[in-house]
Amino acid sequence: MHEYSIVGALISQVEGEARRRGARVVNRVHVRIGTVSGVEPVLLTAAFDVFRERTLCQGAELVIERIAERWTCPACGTVIDRDAGLLCGRCGTPPRLTAGDEIILNRIEMEVS
């Protein structure tokens, strides 16, 4: 259950940004989590609910945007469906994962006085 360690890193990142801007309250934390990032949104939310206590994120909502897995051919740019086999149907090149492994802190909404 590495989501706890990820949330620990997330909250210190958010608190760092918030303090730098003199914010006293964080309202919303927007993250982008890829479907093949190895991070489970339900567990991430559960961990966030535990870790946010007594931090600037105490009353904050965690908003998770899921990013779908996408494989793209590096040679011709064709998007490949993994279930159809990991080879470009047009030119036979092995594709690269171009989306879906994101674990990103995207945006923070905070109250600054």
Binding site: Q13, R21, V31, I103, I108, E109, M110, V112
Partner: peptide, 18 residues
């Protein structure tokens, strides 16, 4: 204390950047 203002900050950084 002065009015509070809602600020939206774009970060776009990997959570595991540390």
């Amino acid at each position: 204390c002065g009015d509070t203002e809602i600020v939206s900050v774009d970060v776009h950084e990997r959570i595991l950047s540390g």
